[in-house]
């Protein structure tokens, strides 16, 4: 345990924590995406999937607790690293040019903050129903369809998924680096995996609100 805390105490260790929790969250997102697109077969499919999740009982709460812990550690490490970065350059340049930094890498912090706000909204929208116009517990498919009929909300979801894609592409690419995996022989595959997973997850999730905006989900 002491070694873990010593590792956490370094900037390198905080990136390790972010990469490890990031992987947990990506695995969740993959399963979330696959289960959500079931809605295109039949909205009731979501209801039975949700019922199955609830039948897991304590296991569901352990999974929820794990995800929450992953988010908390990810956010705390990001917050601390952001403070350290701000502290490291107290006087800004009059002129500073980027040469190679990607748009994805430069939007990690604001994009991550947007994702955090989104996660809270998303839970209040579809889990507790607080922000839902007509929420009925258990009728998940119907709740999604009705929830996305509010166009500004659906547009917000699509925009956030765009940033999720950017966040994942840089996050996955960086996680390899954090775990010490950077080699010319597989960096091309690493780039492909980062973008492939990002587009698959964010794109897959975005299809649902996008379909609602276009009138395909009623």
């Amino acid at each position: 345990m002491n070694r873990l805390f010593a590792l956490w105490g370094t900037t390198v260790g905080k990136k390790v924590a972010m990469a490890a929790t990031g992987i947990i969250l990506i695995l969740f997102l993959v399963s979330h995406m696959i289960s959500n697109v079931l809605i295109f077969r039949n909205p009731e499919h979501l209801d039975s999937y949700a019922a199955w999740l609830r039948s897991l009982g304590p296991a569901l709460w352990i999974a929820r607790g794990g995800l929450l812990a992953a988010v908390v550690v990810h956010v705390i490490a990001a917050y601390q690293l952001t403070l350290l970065a701000r502290r490291a350059r107290p006087v800004a340049y009059a002129r500073h040019e980027y040469q190679v930094a990607t748009y994805a890498s430069r939007t990690m912090r604001w994009g991550g903050l947007l994702l955090l706000v989104f996660i809270i909204f998303h839970i209040l929208h579809f889990t507790t129903g607080t922000f839902h116009p007509d929420f009925r517990p258990g009728e998940v498919g119907r709740n999604v369809v009705i929830g996305f009929q509010v166009t500004p909300v659906a547009v917000f979801y699509v925009v956030v998924m765009l940033f999720l894609g950017l966040h994942l592409s840089h996050g996955i690419w960086s996680a390899f680096q954090t775990f010490g995996l950077n080699h010319p022989s597989y960096n091309r595959s690493r780039r492909l995996l980062a973008w492939g997973l990002a587009i698959l997850v964010a794109g897959g999730l975005a299809t649902i609100p996008a379909a609602a905006i276009l009138g395909y989900l009623k």
Partner: peptide, 30 residues
Amino acid sequence: GGCTLFEECEAACPKEISVENIARMNRDVL
């Protein structure tokens, strides 16, 4: 500050030191 892999350092380095070394160091830290 910490590294978030902008890779600006490698582009600016007059000796073209590769960010591969950062991965190597991260591996050594673990």
